[in-house]
Simulated assay, not measured.
Amino acid sequence: MNQWLEDLRIATGFLTRLPMPHPDGARPQNFARAQRVFSLVGAFIGAAIGLACLLLRAIGVPDLAAAALALGGGALLTGALHEDGLADVADGFGGGRDAAAKLEIMRDSRLGTYGALALLVSFAAKLTAVAAIPDGAVVQSLIVAHALSRGVLPWLSISLPYARKDGLAANAGRPDGVMAVVAAGIALAIALLSLRFSDALLAAIVAGAGACLIALLAMRQIGGQTGDVLGAAEQVAETAILVLLAARLG
Rank of each mutant, 00 (worst) to 15 (best):
A191N: 02
A246K: 03
L71Q: 06
A75D: 13
L216S: 12
G25F: 10
Y162C: 12
L15R: 07
V130R: 00
G72Q: 09
I186A: 09
Q235H: 11
A100P: 03
A132R: 12
I214G: 03
L242D: 03
G115R: 00
Q140R: 15
L71A: 09
A32G: 02
V182P: 05
D63W: 11
M179Q: 15
G13R: 00
R17L: 09
A129L: 10
F38E: 01
E238I: 08
A99Y: 12
G210P: 01
V182F: 01
H146V: 00
M1E: 13
V41M: 02
N171K: 14
R17H: 08
P175V: 05
M179F: 11
A99P: 05
L86Y: 06
Y114E: 07
D135Q: 13
R150Y: 02
L202D: 02
F38G: 09
A172H: 02
G96S: 08
A52H: 03
A246G: 06
G85P: 10
V206A: 01
A183T: 03
G208C: 00
I49H: 06
A170R: 05
L81W: 13
L40H: 09
L120W: 12
V182M: 03
S141N: 09
R110Q: 15
D84W: 04
S149Y: 03
G92P: 08
D88E: 08
I241C: 07
G208E: 06
A191Y: 00
G227P: 03
R57D: 09
G73Y: 11
T128R: 14
L5V: 11
A116I: 10
D98G: 07
G231K: 07
L117N: 12
A118Y: 06
L120A: 14
L64V: 14
H22S: 15
N171A: 15
A67V: 09
E104Q: 09
L160E: 04
G167C: 09
L5Y: 12
F197P: 05
G173M: 06
A124R: 10
T239P: 08
G231V: 07
V182C: 04
A34W: 02
G151N: 02
M20E: 11
W4R: 13
P161T: 05
P28H: 00
A189W: 07
A184I: 08
T113C: 10
G112W: 01
I45E: 07
L77I: 11
